[in-house]
Amino acid sequence: MDVERKPLDDTVIIRPFYSTDSEQVLNVYFTGLVSGVDSAGYFAVTRAFLHWAPMYLAYFLSVSGGGTLLLALRTDIQILGLAIVFLSCCFMFFVYYRIRNAFLGYYQDGLRHDMTDISQYYRQDHEKDGYPIRRFWVAEISSMTSESGYEVVGCVALDCSLNRDEPMIGELKRLFVLPTHRKRGIGTKLIQTVIAFAKEQNITSLRLETTNFQPVAREMYTRLGWYHHDTRDSDFEAGDMKMSFVEYLLPL
């Protein structure tokens, strides 16, 4: 049995995905992964710009070059100051572009997999033809400015397709909440919705994968009883910190 509309508080409802939600869900997905506060992309940019020694050198050089440009009396010294400022800014832009481009790549990977056509990938009638269990839920709030009358502020999915040989294991994925609606228990309720449905389907355990660039999410998973199972390094690095993929498990 699917989980239907469930009031979270006076304004938030957890419900199954509708095809009309697609555009809003993609916005939640992009914001939660690439650009929103506490997203992996945001953490990586913050890490590089606030905690990486070469970036502080770039800041120092840009300020020094700017001072030279403004205060020097000789034209050749002014040109040197301008060149220092320009090169420092190019370095900072390159770091930002590299990080953002990496997370845009992760976003596009999702589009190539299940997020381009959520209704098709997570359609329930596939299961009678032997397809694995897949579900997608959203968190909505009422909205006076939206044409639909509501706004999607979070999402989560359950996907058993990676475990065809172990059908009693499901993967929790695509868990995102817009930064403006965090600290209201929405993420916790989305996870609990997946857990309740998984138990109804006799799924014996859940797994999920996050990154060490998402400390807030990792803290939430630990608090809700998930335990760390495995960590594998990636080739991506932000500043002096290498990104790792962290797997959590939850027996049901």
Rank of each mutant, 00 (worst) to 15 (best):
G66D: 11
A48K: 11
C89T: 13
T68R: 07
F103L: 07
L71V: 12
V63N: 11
S88D: 02
R100G: 07
F103I: 07
V95H: 03
L87F: 14
T75P: 04
T75W: 12
G67Q: 10
L82M: 13
I79Q: 09
C90Y: 06
G65L: 01
Y59G: 02
W52T: 01
S64M: 15
A102N: 15
V45T: 07
L70H: 05
C89V: 10
C89K: 15
F49M: 07
Y96S: 14
G66F: 13
V45E: 02
T46I: 12
L73N: 06
G81S: 04
R98A: 10
R100S: 13
C90G: 06
C89S: 11
F91M: 05
M55H: 05
L61M: 13
I99L: 07
W52K: 11
A58W: 01
R74I: 11
F93H: 03
A72R: 08
L80Q: 09
L57S: 00
Q78W: 02
W52E: 01
A44I: 02
A102G: 08
I79Y: 06
F94C: 13
A48L: 02
F49H: 03
I84L: 05
R100A: 15
G65D: 05
Y97G: 02
F91G: 04
H51D: 11
Y96P: 09
S64I: 15
F49N: 00
F43Q: 07
Y97H: 14
L50A: 14
L61I: 13
A53E: 05
L70Y: 14
F60H: 07
H51T: 09
L70A: 14
L87D: 05
R74H: 14
L82N: 11
A53M: 12
L71M: 10
M92Y: 00
T68K: 07
C90N: 00
I79R: 08
S88R: 01
A72Y: 03
A72T: 13
A83T: 11
V45H: 07
F43C: 10
A44T: 03
T75A: 13
I84Q: 00
L73G: 09
T75I: 05
M55I: 00
L50I: 03
G65N: 05
F60Y: 13
L50E: 09
Y56F: 07
D76Q: 08
L61C: 10
R100H: 14
L70D: 08
L61W: 00
S88F: 02
S64V: 15
T46A: 12
